[in-house]
């Protein structure tokens, strides 16, 4: 039949929400900016340079792979930029610039594109890349103390002022770090590039929750689990409260809980599932920190939980409207 009007005939609905993938990714990037700013303040402009290299490499590999495979481009969705920022955030600021490029290749090509691209990967690309980059363990553990740069503008040096005494190292040994709780909260501590300022990460998280990009379920479940366990079972001679607070503010917990564990593709979609996922991440994080050889367990905890997402979703599908409750208090499980 003829369409004289020239109107488009398609099935309903005929309206789309303004928030597309690109807007969501842009919101995540905005939410990461405060932490990046803190990092520049603490570690100098090298932090920004590493982040930019990482982002550029991620975007390049995203574009290059799809161009090579003759697949439609979707670099414009900005997800590669988010991956680039997150990966840079979990590297020491001293890494040579070629390291994030290798990481970007692993994250984008191996972890993301080989599985089908955005939304199809089963591991968080940034964390998987970080795990892969531990093939260079020396480079990955060259920490610097805060404000140890000779000049804030120095983006090629910085690798000289190396210290092994990170707060996580101290906690691993059952000692309290050599910084006040306030310093740890603000970020005046050693650690990975973007993880140091709990305050700025929380600010970013609040922005995401306010803009309804993420729900607070996973971060809250994750952080509360770590808080409860570390409070009940402090290690060494430490006082419970400060032990708990250092465990929350040092290391990658805030970055992981707010930005990594909430990655849509690698976290459950059901409400109950998200809480289970957060608790699981918290448990494994504390187990690794207490009993593992690594001082930090956030990234491995999230990677392990990533692999359980489909199981969790399947087990926690919501009760259909008008359907019988899964558990009836009177009749027991059905």
């Amino acid at each position: 039949m003829e369409n004289k009007l020239g109107t488009v005939v398609s099935p309903s609905p005929h309206l789309r929400s303004p928030a597309g993938t690109r807007n969501i990714m842009l919101d995540v990037i905005i939410a990461l900016v405060p932490a990046l700013a803190a990092s520049v303040y603490i570690f100098g402009f090298r932090a920004l340079a590493v982040t930019l290299v990482s982002c550029a490499a991620c975007v390049f590999f995203e574009w290059g792979y799809r161009a090579l495979m003759k697949k439609p481009q979707n670099v414009g969705d900005l997800s590669a930029v988010v991956t680039g920022m997150l990966m840079a955030f979990c590297l020491p600021v001293t890494v040579p610039y070629w390291l994030p490029v290798i990481g970007a290749f692993f994250a984008i090509v191996i972890v993301k594109q080989l599985f089908g691209g955005i939304g199809k990967n089963f591991l968080n690309p940034a964390l998987a890349a970080r795990a892969f980059l531990f093939s260079w363990p020396v480079l990955m553990t060259k920490w610097v103390a805060p404000f140890s740069y000779s000049s804030i503008m120095n983006i090629f040096g910085g690798a000289d002022a190396i210290t092994s005494a990170t707060p996580m190292g101290a906690l691993h040994a059952g000692l309290l770090p050599n910084a006040t709780v306030a310093q740890a909260f603000l970020g005046e501590i050693g650690g990975s590039l973007g993880e140091v300022s709990a305050l700025m990460l929380l600010l970013g998280g609040a922005y995401l929750v306010f803009h309804k990009v993420i729900s607070p379920r996973i971060p809250l479940a994750y952080i509360l689990t770590v808080a409860v366990i570390t409070y009940i079972f402090p290690k060494g001679e430490a006082d419970r409260l400060s032990w708990m607070l250092y465990n929350l503010f040092c290391g990658g917990l805030m970055l992981g809980a707010i930005f990594m564990a909430t990655d849509y593709t690698t976290s459950p979609i059901t409400k109950l599932g998200q809480i289970i996922f957060g608790i699981g991440c918290g448990l494994i994080t504390v187990l690794i920190r207490y009993f593992g050889t690594y001082p930090e367990g956030v990234s491995y905890a999230i990677l392990v939980m990533n692999t359980t997402v489909w199981l969790i979703d399947r087990a926690t599908l919501p009760r259909r409207f008008g359907g019988k409750p899964k558990f009836d208090l009177k009749g027991g499980a059905r």
Binding site: N3, L5, T7, S12, P13, H14
Partner: peptide, 19 residues
């Protein structure tokens, strides 16, 4: 120029091509 002509609402209505 109309891009879509709908009978009913934008969520459940049906697209038309003839006036």
């Amino acid at each position: 120029s109309p891009f879509k002509l709908l009978m009913g609402g934008p969520m459940m209505g049906s697209a038309q091509y003839d006036l």
